[in-house]
């Protein structure tokens, strides 16, 4: 593992902590709303992945593309998607980012470069390669990031996309959130190769593995690749070791795994870990940290209220949107 030495300052610490709290508060609120059926459908929470979302998306521009998978809330929020639009989407309202037609797994916010999320494991990998091809042909220094889980690595389209990205030297950064769980089974049941960055060893491009619960490590690891990608390098793969705090989906009884001991979770909780570190390093003080959390929770609450004011879409919309006009 690459041990990160981030050039962290108070401004950056504040920003990262704010993003992480917004994601955490959003996800916790979604879990509550799911229990009371105000949010429906299949919901995948990203608690435990806040460090990756904040550390990666926090360095991107609006014109950089991000593709995510079924566990996309954190990436969208970190990329700048408005909380009300997100929440309204999850609550199936017409003012949702996708007018309520996509829901949790299919968040799109092109304005902020959140190009899409796909509900099929790894289905986003070749699409992201296509976006990176477009970026390269466009002649700008914009880049593409694709988030995927370790489960997607075993899908054939992972290797197909990696081969083409390497052959065509696309400005694409593969960001694998290796949480050790592919849906309901552990990685050891999916692949003989523990580290995802070793899977791409034959392709010869730069790769690294960082601790995903350490947002500083993610920031530094990703930043190195980003700098090279902006100069026309690519592709790259950053593997972030994370822990999925929640089940695969909300309501999942998780009989397939042992809960991490609370103590161990505290060590791998990216938010708690970073906040403690920032406090210890004097980058923020207690009142500021408390204020960040309060603001995040208030913003999420406002998003819920805003979403509730929005109506459900008319039935006709479902038929109207089948084809582009």
């Amino acid at each position: 593992m690459e041990r990160a030495v981030p050039t962290m300052d108070a401004e950056l610490a504040n920003r990262l902590l704010s993003t992480m709290w917004r994601i955490r508060a959003f996800e916790e609120r979604v879990a509550q709303l799911k229990r009371t059926m105000q949010v429906h459908g299949l919901i995948h929470l990203s608690i435990g992945g806040e460090g990756v979302a904040a550390g990666v998306c926090g360095q991107l521009r609006n014109d950089d593309g991000v593709y995510s998978g079924h566990r996309a809330h954190g990436h969208a929020i970190a990329k700048g998607a408005p909380l009300t639009g997100m929440m309204a989407e999850l609550m199936g309202r017409v003012d949702g980012l996708c007018h309520g037609l996509g829901g949790s797994m299919h968040v799109v916010d092109r304005e902020h470069g959140m190009l899409g999320a796909t509900g099929v494991v790894g289905g986003n990998l070749p699409m992201a390669a296509g976006d990176a091809l477009a970026a390269k042909l466009g002649g700008t220094d914009r880049i593409t990031v694709v988030f995927f889980g370790d489960g997607a690595v075993q899908a054939g389209h992972f290797h197909e996309s990696v081969n083409l990205a390497a052959l065509w030297q696309l400005p694409l950064i593969f960001v694998c959130e290796n949480n050790g769980m592919a849906e309901f089974t552990s990685r050891a049941e999916h692949s003989p190769v523990d580290s995802v960055s070793d899977v791409v060893a034959p392709y010869g491009f730069k790769r690294a593995t960082v601790e995903g619960s350490d947002v500083g490590a993610v920031w530094t690891g990703f930043g190195k690749f980003l700098k090279l990608a902006r100069r026309g390098g690519g592709p790259f793969l950053l593997e972030c070791r994370t822990h999925r705090r929640a089940g695969h989906y909300e309501g999942d009884a998780q009989e397939y795994r042992d809960e991490l001991a609370e103590q161990e979770w505290a060590q791998r909780d990216p938010l708690a870990r970073f906040q403690e570190q920032a406090l210890a390093d004097g980058l923020i003080d207690e009142p500021t940290a408390a204020e960040i959390e309060t603001q995040a929770r208030a913003a999420v609450e406002a998003a819920v209220e805003g979403a509730r004011k929005s109506t459900f879409p008319t039935a006709e919309l479902a038929a109207e949107l089948v084809y582009a006009k």
Binding site: Q154, A155, G156, H157, F158, H159, E160, N163, E189, H190, S191, P192
Partner: peptide
């Protein structure tokens, strides 16, 4: 060997 079917298969066989 550029087919997903190849990588999908070799992964499982090795596993």
């Amino acid at each position: 060997t550029k087919q997903g079917a190849f990588s999908e298969s070799l992964n499982i066989a090795s596993l």
